[in-house]
């Protein structure tokens, strides 16, 4: 019995320890960012790997989410004779919630895991230590570019996801089912406000970008330098990114979309 309590206590202390470490790590990344921006091609390279390489999965899943929303939304709305509001339903659910959240989850599993694996493997092969020996800060050289690559690409990917989803909803609603084209766009534009809906969605996706990128680089940097440790770190990246995204989404929604 006492053993169980001892374990719980050590887990709690470990958690708080890690929280402090991740906060200090975040601060270090911000401090070294200026130094890493002087060699901007490093960040551009990471933008390529986490942004451009995620384009395909984001665009295709955005399209399919939009298609499903169009089908299911029409199914329910036509019962109340409100099928003209299909555009509103598709656009609001994508711009406010689904766009940032699903794009964030996909981004965490597509790009976040890759970043963790890369940094973890660098730690295993002691490249990070070698950099330190040569007076090159691994945080400025390796970590900060990957962090900023994720932070910059995430809002762009979420916007692409939402735009693609609206296109998918239009494809099913207007082209396939035959909802009136004018009513679809007019009702959508009437209900979706740029500052209230679109910008809040962008803010959400930027926050998710910071959370996912920070978790990814931290887990890679903090991993146990063995094959097993790297694989565990990748799993932790995906799991804690997903949890962080969903929890942060709830908190931000309750602040942003009230009344």
């Amino acid at each position: 019995m006492a053993d169980v309590f001892r374990k719980m206590g050590s887990m709690a202390i470990n958690g708080i320890w890690q929280l402090g470490f991740i906060a200090r790590f975040f601060w270090l990344i911000l401090v070294y960012s200026g130094q890493s921006f002087t060699r901007i091609h490093l960040t551009l390279r990471e933008l390529y790997f986490s942004g451009v390489m995620s384009l395909l999965i984001i665009l295709v899943s955005g399209l399919f989410v939009g298609l499903v929303l169009g089908l299911q939304g029409y199914e329910t709305l036509q019962r109340y004779g409100a099928s003209d509001s299909l555009g509103t339903l598709v656009a609001l659910s994508l711009v406010r919630e689904l766009g940032p959240v699903v794009a964030g989850l996909l981004f965490a599993s597509r790009a976040g895991s890759a970043v963790t694996a890369e940094i973890g493997l660098m730690k295993v092969t002691e490249q990070l230590k070698a950099m330190d020996m040569m007076a090159v800060s691994p945080i400025a050289r390796v970590v900060a570019p990957r962090f900023w690559g994720g932070v910059i690409s995430m809002p762009l990917l979420a916007a692409l996801f939402s735009a693609m989803g609206v296109f998918g909803g239009w494809l099913i609603g207007v082209v396939v089912i035959g909802v009136d084209d004018g009513a679809f766009w007019a009702q959508m534009q009437d209900a979706v406000d740029f500052r209230y809906d679109v910008l809040n969605g962008v803010i959400k996706s930027a926050v998710f970008g910071v959370a996912v990128a920070l978790i990814a680089v931290f887990e890679g940097y903090d991993c146990v330098p063995t094959a097993e440790g790297v694989s565990r770190a990748i799993t932790r990246t995906v799991v804690s990114s997903a949890l962080a995204i969903l929890a942060l989404d709830f908190v931000m929604t309750s602040f942003m979309f009230r009344g």
Binding site: L55, L156, V166, V198
Partner: peptide, 27 residues
């Protein structure tokens, strides 16, 4: 690679403009 990054950023900004002008109204 720079070209692709440029394409990506341009697409993202275009999507934002689409959301701002076509989907939403800048009321």
């Amino acid at each position: 690679m720079d070209l692709w990054v440029g394409v990506f950023v341009a697409m993202g900004i275009a999507a934002l403009f689409f959301l701002a002008l076509k989907v939403g109204s800048i009321s």
